[in-house]
């Protein structure tokens, strides 16, 4: 009597993201059962949730997209550095030539926004941007629904 898998496409990015994200939230809540609501704790929890959302989104997309690969690599690096006790966010970006008709500053702005966009050419960058926008929309929808359900 498990009705849930029948209801949705099991392999869609949305489903996988929701499963992964809820699992991550579960583990987060289990690790900290006693939750005093001081702002520091909330801030830390917020960061953890953001990390969990990013990681579950990227792992739901898989490694066939450049931006998800970049996100996963970044998270892995951060985790490895956090294990050692120092967190240093170092972004190494290299810029390839901007395309015709597109301003260099704007292309750079887009490169900074899309994860892993520093090492793409323009064609690839536009492609990844489209996919990234789709995934961000999905993420926002799912998270908003979770918030709504929790608040009711």
């Amino acid at each position: 009597m498990t009705p849930q898998p029948l209801l949705m496409k099991p392999n869609s990015i949305k489903t996988r993201f929701a499963y992964g994200f809820l699992r991550a939230l579960n583990s987060l809540n289990k690790n900290k059962p006693s939750s005093p609501s001081s702002p520091k704790v909330i801030f830390r929890r917020c960061r953890m949730i953001k990390l969990a959302a990013d990681a579950s989104m990227a792992s739901a997309v898989g490694s066939r997209r450049a931006w998800s690969r970049a996100v996963l690599c970044k998270i892995r690096c951060q985790r490895a550095l956090a294990m050692r006790g120092r967190i240093r966010s170092g972004g190494f970006r290299r810029r390839s030539g901007a395309g015709k008709g597109f301003g260099v500053g704007q292309t750079d702005g887009l490169r900074k926004l899309v994860p892993g966009g520093g090492a793409m050419d323009l064609c690839c960058l536009l492609d990844e941007t489209a996919h990234y926008i789709k995934c961000l929309t999905t993420q926002v929808q799912v998270m908003r629904n979770i918030v709504d359900i929790c608040s009711t």
Binding site: Q4, Y19, L22, R23, K30, N145, I149
Partner: peptide, 15 residues
């Protein structure tokens, strides 16, 4: 959270 896990997954997508 387990209930959420069962519940939300069905709800989140279509809600």
């Amino acid at each position: 959270d387990f209930n959420i896990d069962n519940f939300v997954v069905t709800e989140v997508f279509s809600a």
